[in-house]
Design a protein around this nucleic acid. Structure first.
Length: 265
DNA sequence: ATGCCGTATGATATACGA
C-alpha cells in the first residue's frame, strides 16, 4: 500500500501537479491538506479519472481543508470538533483491512511564539493538547493507526536547516516541540520518516517560496509527518520525499511524502 | 530568515502561510 501525504496549497491550482504525481508514483491513498475549497466545488471528477473512486473530503472556502482519496473503499470515522472550531483540519478514515488513517492539518500558529500576544499560537498549542488527550483515551496495544499530515512542527534539530536560528521561529520553538512530544507519547506513535532517515541526517519537506533557489540554499523544514502505532512498524517498507514535485512550475511549498507499507504483515 | 512569494477573495488590497 502506497500512502502519500501532501500539503497541496490549493488543490484547484495544482491539478496538473497531482496528475503528474499520480502517473509517476501510482499511490493507493493520498491525504491532502490545505485544499482551500468547499466540498461542492471540489474537483471530484478529476480524481475519479485518476482512478480514485473512494474519497472523503472536508473543506471550506479559502482556508484549510483536508481530503483523502483512495483506490479501495474507505469509511469515514467520527472525530471531535477541535477547540470547538469546525476548521476542516482533520479527517479519520478506516481502510478495508481495518487500518485507520488520521489526516491532520495542525494550525500554523502565526508569527509570534507567545500565547499572550498571539492567539493563533495559543490555538496551535491547544489543538495539539486536545489531540494528545483524544489519542491517549483510545490507546490500545493492537491499534493499527497511521497519522499523517502537515503538523507544522519540525521537532528535531535535523528537521530544520539551522536549529540555532530557528529556536525562536514558530514551527521549531521548544514549547511546540514539547507539545509534539506529548502528542507522540499519547499513543506511542513512531516517527516513520525517521525510521528511514535517522538523525542527524537532515530531512526537510517544506521550503519557503521566498528563497530564490530553494534547492541550492536548502533552507528547509520537515513540517510533514507520517507516524504509525507500534503494531505497524513491521509493515514499513520504504519512504521518499518527492523533491521533483517541489521543483516543478508553480509548485506547492510542501513536497509530497510517500510511504510504502506491506499491510499483510 | 520579518524576506526575494504564493493562494484566495463579491478582490484592484488584505488575510494567511511558516
Amino acid at each position: 500500500m502506497r500512502l502519500v501525504t501532501w500539503n497541496i496549497n490549493s488543490v484547484r491550482a495544482r491539478l496538473d501537479h497531482v496528475e503528474h504525481f499520480v502517473q509517476t508514483h501510482d499511490p493507493d491513498v493520498i491525504c491532502f491538506q490545505e485544499t482551500k475549497v468547499t466540498d461542492n466545488e471540489f474537483p471530484l471528477k478529476f480524481f475519479e479519472k485518476q482512478g480514485f473512486s473512494h474519497y472523503e473530503i472536508a473543506g471550506q472556502k479559502s482556508y484549510n481543508g483536508v481530503a483523502v482519496f483512495s483506490k479501495t473503499p474507505i469509511e469515514r470515522l467520527e472525530a471531535p470538533l477541535w477547540c470547538g472550531k469546525d476548521d476542516k483540519r482533520h479527517l479519520a478514515v478506516r481502510m478495508q483491512d481495518g487500518t485507520v488513517i488520521h489526516n491532520f492539518y495542525i494550525p500554523a500558529g502565526g508569527d509570534i511564539p507567545d500565547t499572550e500576544q498571539n492567539e493563533k499560537f495559543a490555538y496551535k498549542l491547544s489543538f495539539m493538547k486536545e489531540v494528545s488527550a483524544w489519542f491517549a483515551d483510545m490507546k490500545a496495544a493492537d491499534n493499527r493507526f497511521i497519522l499523517v499530515g502537515d503538523l507544522n512542527v519540525a521537532p528535531l534539530e535535523s528537521d530544520v536547516w539551522s536549529h540555532k536560528k530557528l529556536l525562536k521561529v514558530v514551527s521549531h520553538t521548544p514549547i511546540e516541540v514539547e507539545h509534539m512530544d506529548e502528542m507522540m507519547a499519547s499513543h506511542d506513535w513512531i516517527d516513520a520518516m525517521r525510521h528511514f532517515v535517522p538523525e542527524p541526517e537532515p530531512m526537510y519537506s517544506w521550503w519557503s517560496y521566498r528563497a530564490r533557489d530553494w534547492r541550492t540554499s536548502n533552507k528547509g523544514r520537515r513540517l510533514d509527518h507520517v507516524w504509525v502505532t507500534p503494531a505497524l512498524i513491521p509493515t514499513l517498507k520504504a519512504m521518499k520525499i518527492d523533491l521533483d514535485a517541489r521543483g516543478r512550475e508553480k509548485p506547492s511549498d510542501h513536497a509530497p511524502v510517500i510511504m510504502d507499507f506491506d499491510l499483510s504483515k
